[in-house]
Amino acid sequence: MELADGLPPRFGRLVRKLVTAKLAMSAIATLILPLTFLMVVIFRYILHWDLFAYEEWLLPISFWLYFLACGVGSYQDTQIRADILESYFKSARAIWLRRLCLHVVETLICFVMLYWTYLLLDSGIAQYPYWQKTIALKIPFFVAHLGIFLGVFFMAFYGLLHVYVLVRFGPQMIREPSPVQCKLMGEEQCC
């Protein structure tokens, strides 16, 4: 089951669309990274020309990639975590309770992170007119910071949705394999 399946249908459709959009953007950015380096090499070696200051636009793109994709990671619940204690939770109720606790803690932390990211944006804007900009192309740092903000926002948002779905369906939603079993079987069979 995907997270959106546990939401009210219209809201679920919206959430699903947002995830699709983020994935499409991230996938394109993922392709842009290596393509840029190929271009750098080709430009230098074959065209004897410089892709001047390419890192100034490539790095903001990569920050959007990291954080939007990490938001999707929260949606899919594929954040990296230690699953040492997982096997000790056997009953549906225990598994459900553990998942609920983890998502509540993670979501609370995400909201604090979101507040810190808001402070980052705010302190950046407050420096007007002397915004931090890249030296050559004058791309404001705000661009990358905004990507970070949106990513953390979605991490917090999806965390909240996980909590909502867990509370809405209660322990009986734990009929499916646990995330560890998911890993064992491959994600496809799971979701």
Binding site: L23, S26, Y66, F67, A69, C70, Q76, T78, Q79, M155
Partner: peptide, 17 residues
């Protein structure tokens, strides 16, 4: 296309960490 999407999520999760 599927590979790019999967890779991007791995990248996001690893890099934000």
């Amino acid at each position: 296309w599927e590979t790019l999407k999967e890779s991007s999520v791995t990248i996001g999760v690893v890099m934000v960490m």
